[in-house]
């Protein structure tokens, strides 16, 4: 079961089955203490929502830039179309679901459909070097 953890040095918040050994923000070792949702929300405060296409595409670009294995497709029109779908799904279905999958109706299961999903484990990625919708591709793919 995943739990909330707080770095007692810099108040970094982490959700996971165990505490990080090193705080990714301040570098403190063995600094995380068990937290809870109220405390975490107080620390996190109100974050800007990723609720328009520009913000979603910026988040994808940051994800792409930090990855050594995958990057955003170079097909800008497809990135644009997919970001539109993700934002529409956020408004209509409550999460930034992949527009090329389909929700099951089970909110727990559907967490796996939030873009970017864990596409590295999917057969489509293993066979084609692309995530299901073609948004993310292996770095050595066109």
């Amino acid at each position: 079961m995943k739990e909330l953890w707080r770095c007692h040095v810099c108040n970094d918040v982490h959700l996971g089955s165990k505490a990080p050994g090193v705080c990714p923000t301040c570098g403190a070792r063995n600094a995380f203490v068990l937290s809870d949702l109220d405390e975490a929300l107080e620390i996190i405060g109100k974050q800007p929502a990723l609720d328009d296409q520009a913000k979603v595409m910026a988040a994808w670009k940051r994800f792409s830039d930090q990855s050594a294995t995958v990057r955003l497709t170079s097909k800008a029109d497809e990135v644009e179309l997919l970001s539109k779908g993700v934002v529409e799904n956020l408004k209509g279905k409550g999460q930034r679901y992949c527009p090329c999958r389909i929700t099951t109706g089970d909110p727990g299961k559907d967490l796996a459909l939030i873009c970017p999903c864990n596409f590295l484990k999917q057969p489509a990625y293993k066979e084609t070097g692309e995530c299901w919708c073609g948004l993310f591709v292996k770095r050595d793919e066109k």
Binding site: E78, L82, G85, E88, P99, I102, C133
Partner: peptide, 12 residues
């Protein structure tokens, strides 16, 4: 044919 309006593969 099941398709999605914002699915690039469907559009193609």
């Amino acid at each position: 044919w099941f398709h999605g309006r914002e699915c690039p593969h469907c559009r193609k």
